[in-house]
């Protein structure tokens, strides 16, 4: 079953097409990676899917619903969650509170009730906090439950962002370079985490540069170059596709 369908997506900045008539689909429950040389448009694509950019042309479908041009918070309501390449942690809040914000759409958001300090809000909030702590343990940062974000190491913060995204119980998670800046051991742990997430039924879309992680974990890979689809397929096909090798390594790579 297809969970995401992109048709003819185009995004231009000041006349330059960063994404050019791109079309592809993503199967539900799969781990799907998007790779490509620098400047291929990977993060732009994620920004388009998560509503941070408006496309200039084309459509995006989540399941059967046309989600083109919807605001980010509306997309969250449709079940899309994401992490960011450059950490967007709420440093003015504790670790648990960060994850609790991820559950915002499931919290009791009655404005008047909030002003009056209604009991039911406090009760739901306590449940929310318990869920947040559970998710932090699932993701492997249970030891930081009482912590302030300012004192957490980089690797833990990367996981915190993933926890925050998971807290929304999304249908589809977009991970923007989750292994960036991590050593091989930490990257292996991320590998396991991604598999664990996919096992819960959530579709994972991964943008990554770390080829070992990508080849090891992906069910399906999409290769972008200059905003266009260069190739797509399973890990083995992509690894041996001459176009892909050339794009990454240049002409000399072709003879390897």
């Amino acid at each position: 079953m297809t969970i995401l369908r992109v048709e003819g997506l185009t995004k231009t900045f000041a006349g330059v097409s960063v994404i050019d008539a791109l079309s592809f689909t993503i199967a539900s429950g799969a781990i799907h990676s998007i790779i490509g040389p620098n400047g291929a448009g990977k993060t732009t694509l994620l920004n388009l899917i998560s509503g941070l950019y408006m496309p200039n042309a084309g459509r995006i479908f989540l399941g059967d619903t046309d989600i083109t041009g919807l605001m980010p918070h509306a997309l969250a309501g449709h079940g899309i969650a994401r992490t960011f390449q450059n950490l967007q942690i709420f440093f003015n809040m504790t670790a648990v509170e960060n994850v609790m914000v991820g559950r915002h759409l499931r919290a009791d958001r009655g404005f008047l009730a909030a002003l009056l300090g209604a009991r039911r809000i406090m009760v739901r909030d306590a449940e929310c906090r318990e869920m947040a702590e559970e998710i932090m343990r699932f993701v492997g940062i249970g030891g930081y439950i009482g912590s302030d974000t300012g004192s957490m190491p980089y690797g833990a913060l990367k996981r915190l962002e993933i926890a925050r995204a998971l807290a929304a119980e999304p249908r589809m998670m977009l991970l923007d370079e989750p292994a960036a800046g991590l050593n091989p051991v930490e990257t292996g742990a991320i590998d396991d985490l991604i598999q664990a997430i996919a096992e819960t039924g959530t579709t994972v879309v991964l943008v990554e540069h770390d080829m070992r992680l990508v080849m090891g974990v992906s069910d399906h890979i999409l290769v972008l170059e200059a905003g266009r689809k260069l190739a797509e397929g399973g890990a083995r096909e992509i690894r041996h596709d001459p176009k892909v090798v050339e794009a990454y390594l240049g002409h000399a790579g072709r003879n390897r």
């Binding site: 509503g51 942690i89 915002h104």
Partner: peptide, 19 residues
């Protein structure tokens, strides 16, 4: 909490569902 999140990172708050 949502308002404080907006202060921390408006982008991340929006993506988390905060209108």
């Amino acid at each position: 909490r949502a308002l404080r999140a907006v202060h921390g990172s408006e982008v991340a708050a929006a993506v988390a569902g905060v209108d």
